[in-house]
Computed example of a mutant assay.
Amino acid sequence: MSSDVSADPHDQPATAALGAAHPLSRGVTAAAPLIRAYQGERMPQPPVWFMRQAGRSLPEYRALREGTAMLDACLDPQMASEITLQPVRRHGVDAAIFFSDIVVPLRLAGVAVDIVPGRGPVLERPVRTASDVARLTAADPAALAPDDVCGPLGPVIEGVRRTVDQLGPTPLIGFGGAPFTLAAYLVEGGPSKDHLRARTLMHADPESWQALMRWCADVTGAFLRAQVLAGASAAQLFDSWAGSLSLDDYAKHVAPASTRALEHVRGLTYDAEGGARNVPLVHFGVGTGELLKAMRDTGADVIGVDYRIPLDEASRRLGHSVPLQGNVDPAMLGAPWSVLEQHVRDVIERGASAPAHVLNLGHGVPPDTDPGVLTRLVELVHGLD
């Protein structure tokens, strides 16, 4: 079997225009600084938002979530929407990112998974053999119809719609876990330091691996597509564990599935000055400095960069050809303000080497971060000359 599990014209979603009510189609978010930067236009100040900006660093989040399990909160449209909006109100960031979790589509596809506090996603039954893969992939990802409000993705669709109705011109970013990260959780049964079982399956049984990756791509692709159809103005694919891979393994055994996942959204367009535009797609990975070009080649419009590599070096590796997002070191949020400010200014200066730059963290907001620091950081960036 070929290692190419990317787009198949017979089973990938067709190109389609977003509905007339979509914020991009109506022009509500199309001119937002974030969207313009994602499309390669350099802004006077880089737009800014933070990965995990909606979450444990906010006291209002902790109060709202008290007594509610993580996945239950994700699938409660009213709660998910309110959590998404909290950091926009508090910090004045240039984008919201929908509050959910990368394993939500796995749960909706019938996988017994839970998020254990202090540990993360844990699978009741890991997927480690050919028969395990066959059992899992017998569940047709097409059942996750991304435009069916009465289907499994209905709570996600409703949550996005509620959020967009209140955001006005601030864009909402939809997100999903990249196929490798989902597959790693499925095979390992939970978090892992080296993802050895997943990488072993990749080589020991490449046919089963490809089937697993294809299934993960379509499940997370449907999740992404549902968010965009419901009103998200951009989409980000997270590959939390791709940094454990060699470039060769990533290119041969992982990148084609990421391409396939992004294809679920790639064909969604809206009319803009100069013709039809696609919804901007961001690809971010942790520890992926050696994989940046291969990640770009999956079809991403923007590459997210973690804190391990300077933005100017990332841009050089990418031929200064693609907008970048990142990459303030989350550890700096706990440093004295003078140290953080100098670091942020350095990140912005290095980001000037890319066609456009969106300021973000090089990973998520740590739970013990002082929210006032994030608000002050946003004010700093918005006040730059």
Rank of each mutant, 00 (worst) to 15 (best):
274 G>V: 12
364 G>V: 04
292 L>E: 01
15 T>V: 14
194 D>V: 12
328 V>I: 15
58 L>T: 03
274 G>H: 09
161 R>G: 13
291 L>C: 03
73 A>K: 08
333 L>F: 00
67 G>Q: 06
87 P>H: 03
145 A>P: 00
246 S>M: 05
139 A>H: 12
360 N>Y: 06
349 E>Y: 01
197 R>P: 00
314 A>G: 02
89 R>T: 09
127 V>P: 07
139 A>Q: 13
35 I>L: 13
372 G>E: 14
379 E>W: 02
239 D>I: 03
328 V>A: 10
217 A>M: 11
304 G>W: 02
39 Q>P: 00
65 R>Q: 08
40 G>N: 13
110 G>L: 08
128 R>F: 00
162 R>K: 13
200 T>W: 02
86 Q>I: 02
153 L>A: 04
322 V>Y: 02
63 A>T: 14
4 D>M: 04
317 R>Q: 15
114 D>C: 08
210 Q>Y: 10
122 V>D: 01
50 F>P: 10
319 G>S: 08
334 G>I: 01
24 L>Q: 12
378 V>R: 13
270 Y>A: 03
364 G>T: 05
98 F>E: 03
278 N>T: 15
188 E>C: 11
102 I>G: 06
67 G>M: 05
133 V>H: 03
280 P>N: 08
325 Q>I: 09
270 Y>R: 01
138 A>Y: 07
304 G>D: 07
212 L>Y: 04
154 G>H: 09
97 I>Y: 11
346 D>E: 13
116 V>H: 11
152 P>L: 05
36 R>C: 12
